[in-house]
Write a protein that binds this DNA or RNA. Structure first.
Length: 268
DNA sequence: ACCACCTCCTGATCGC
DNA sequence: TGCGATCAGGAGGTGG
């Protein structure tokens, strides 16, 4: 699943479209567009000014409009020629300069887009409720939010209103790096452990960004560019493999319905 | 406020 | 081998 490093990698690749003008839009599977979105055809003839990210959201800046795009599980973008055949899982097509075709491809159709007026970005619930990314999060505020909860720390860190950008892969890795058991309830977490979670998140996300993200089945970047961070994973998908610290087998459990990989000896 | 549970989807994998 | 059942999972919604 695309998380913060993968989304940043996608944004970087797509920035080659900046300065180009939208000449055609095709919505093949309309449910990808949120019900509360403006009509995406308002982007016709508009010029793409910038692409930024906020957590797992891509933000396409078209001057007076912003198109938000969340890839959820398997959303991906491809840049093709407008004459290229439309593939089975390509649901939204935006053509630029009558030559370049941006294809939104999503096997499971979980991804969502929403077109908003730029001045409404501060009134858009999905965006404003996002917490800060680990790079700039306030550790005391994060601790105050964590200790109010009895949910497992694993589940708390997947909540984008608590900390922004981590998904299942990186939460598994962050908790291993922090030596914290994923099932430990939030109200048992200390300020020191919170600080460690932030430090580990920054370290792991920065390394993953450097590697272009993690390539697993559900994620490939635009243009088939693939990341390399899967080679650095220490627990995710490593069930029964030896822990890199203590050599005991990595365990797989389910925490609130999510696959969780950890070392029960190293993570307390 | 907090949290459990359901929904959306389809390809891969499992079980018989 | 084949076919139906089950699973995976981010975020939004519902309801206790």
């Amino acid at each position: 699943m695309p998380e913060l490093p993968e989304v940043r990698t996608v944004a970087k690749v797509l920035r080659k479209l900046i300065g180009k003008q939208v000449t055609d839009i095709q919505v093949i599977y309309p449910k990808i567009i949120n019900d509360n979105s403006l009509d995406i055809n308002l982007l016709l003839n508009k010029t793409l000014k910038d692409i930024t990210t906020n957590g797992k959201y891509l933000l396409f800046d078209y001057d007076q409009y912003i198109l938000t795009s969340h890839l959820r599980m398997e959303g991906k973008y491809f840049i093709k020629d407008i004459k290229d055949k439309i593939e089975k899982h390509e649901h939204i097509i935006i053509n630029f300069n009558n030559e370049i075709s941006l294809r939104y491809d999503d096997t499971r159709k979980f991804g969502r887009m929403q077109l908003i007026k730029k001045e409404d970005i501060d009134k858009t619930p999905s965006i404003i409720k996002l917490a800060k990314e680990p790079f700039e999060i306030d550790r005391k505020e994060l601790y105050d939010k964590i200790i109010k909860k009895r949910l497992p720390i694993k589940s708390i860190l997947l909540d984008q209103t608590i900390i922004n950008g981590l998904g299942n892969i990186y939460v598994n890795e962050v908790l291993f790096d922090s030596k914290i058991c994923p099932t430990k309830p939030g109200n048992k977490i200390t300020q020191e452990e919170t600080n460690q979670i932030v430090d580990s998140s920054v370290k792991i996300l920065n390394n993953a960004i450097k590697e272009g993200g993690t390539t697993i089945r559900s994620y490939t970047s635009s243009l088939g560019i693939t990341g390399n961070y899967q080679n650095h994973l220490k627990v995710h998908l490593k069930e029964k493999e030896p822990c890199t610290i203590c050599n005991k087998p990595i365990e797989k459990i389910t925490v609130n319905g999510r696959s969780t990989y950890f070392c029960s000896f190293c993570q307390k």
